[in-house]
Design a protein around this nucleic acid. Structure first.
Lengths: 137, 137
DNA sequence: ATGAACCTTGGAGTATAGTCTAGTGTCAAG
DNA sequence: CTTGACACTAGACTATACTCCAAGGTTCAT
């Protein structure tokens, strides 16, 4: 069982952020101590990690909330709903993957462009690099 | 030359957003008409597209501003600075790629988990799916 | 020559995601 | 038995990224 400061330390967020996430339903301590201190389980480190990863790749807290709420039950009905929701998210994740790859390529083109690189100094802005994505990977 | 509404329509943002981006140095119309109307060049569609892509994968407007400002000149000095900056961005982009791939896999695991899928119904939440990334791709 | 549909500016308002402060309580070490 | 590091709540404040509004000017088709 971890106190809020311990979880915060391990997950590299502030205590305030954890309380904020709790207020918004993203994470709830397993239970409270006599004194009312939040007590988290070890697996909550993973949960916070997921929240941070998902946030970093562009999901909002409310989307992350939905993802964390998902529970595929045996109930066929809810299962179909979950599948639809998840498949929609996979679609946006794929779009994001494509876009981030595109940006990565442009950055690499830009990085190779000058400074004694092999490229002629024509790709001199990110927009020019974006327009011309051929050989670099 | 495009008026603000035309650019907004093509780039699928609001006029207000374009004015907001201008205020923050992300995009400036080529020039103004006699009446003071903003007139954009065709290439500004691409510029707005870049802003939106970069935003979607988690860059802030101020980072995007920096990316757009980058100009690899022949000057060796500034060139090294640019390379450093760009290489740092490539590092974060790679991290983001890894994280988004991880999330994608979990979503796929989750999607396959039930509903007559081949997986047993053990992967029933995103966190369980995250923990167990083996065969799916 | 007038009305709709556009454009201008400045400034206020909103949503999201924290971050900080105040006032108070808890706990472990010296 | 007190001091320092931590915890609690409620609420105010901040940054980012828009979004809307008011009051007015422009363009153009009818």
């Amino acid at each position: 069982m971890l106190k809020i400061g311990e979880l915060a330390g391990q997950a590299k967020v502030s205590r305030d952020t954890l309380r904020f996430y709790e207020k918004h339903g993203l994470i709830t301590p397993d239970h409270r101590s006599e004194a009312g201190y939040r007590l988290y389980s070890d697996s909550d480190i993973k949960r916070v990690g997921f929240i941070l990863s998902a946030k970093e790749v562009g999901f909002t807290l409310s989307e992350i909330h939905q993802l964390l709420e998902l529970e595929v039950t045996k109930d066929q009905k809810s299962c179909e709903d979950v599948k639809q929701f998840v498949d929609a998210k996979i679609t946006v994740v794929n779009q994001r993957l494509a876009e981030i790859s595109r940006i990565k390529k442009s950055l690499q083109t830009l990085s190779n462009a000058c400074c004694g690189g092999d490229e002629p100094a024509t790709h001199c802005t990110i927009l020019e690099a974006l327009g011309d994505q051929t050989s670099q990977d």
